[in-house]
Amino acid sequence: MVRFRISGAAALLGLLGACAQPAPAPLVVDPYAGRPSAGYTGNLAGLGATAEDFRTTAGDTVLFSQDQATLGAEARATLVRQAEWLKRNGSFSSVVEGHSDEQGTREYNLALGARRAGAVQEYLIAQGVEAGRITTRSMGKERPLEVCSTPECYDKNRRAVTIVQPGAGV
C-alpha cells in the first residue's frame, strides 16, 4: 500500500503511478447533493481519489440495528480499518455523519444520528486516532441512502458514514 503524507494533487499522481490504472472518474461523496457548493471546491480531484481510496481500503459506512447505536462485530472491523487508514494518513481529518431510517420523529432521529456518530467517534479515538481529527454531525432522517420504505432499505439507512478530507488534520 502506498503511504501518503502529501497533499491531494500529489497523492493522485502517486496513486496513478503505483497502480497504473486509468484515472477513475472523480467520485465525490456529496452529503448535501443539491447545494450550490458542498464546500469542497478547488480540490475535488485530489479529494475524490483519496476518498475513494478510503472507501475502498477501509470502508466508509457502518450499519446499526433499529434504534441502536451499538457497534456490532462487522462495524467494529470496519472502524479498525478506518482508524488504521487515518493513522497512516495523518494530514486528513474526518467527519462522521450519523443517519437514521425514516421511522421515528425528525427530532428524535437527529439525536439518534448524533448518538451513532458519537459511538463511531469514540471507537476511532479508542483505536488511536487523535480526537481533534474527528468531528461529528447528524443528518437524522434527512439524507437516506435508499429511498424505499421497506425493512431492507431501513437497514441500509441506519448508518454512520466517515468522510475524510485532506489538509484539515493535526
Binding site: E107, A111, A114, R115, R137, S138
Partner: peptide, 25 residues
C-alpha cells in the same frame, strides 16, 4: 456540539432546545 428542536417560552425570554455533545442529547 449540535443544537436543534428549539421553542420559545410564553414570555419570549427563554428558549428550550436540544443540545448534543459527544453523541448525547
Amino acid at each position: 456540539t449540535m443544537s436543534f428542536a428549539p421553542r420559545f417560552s410564553p414570555d419570549g425570554r427563554w428558549i428550550v432546545y436540544s443540545r448534543e455533545k459527544s453523541g448525547n442529547t
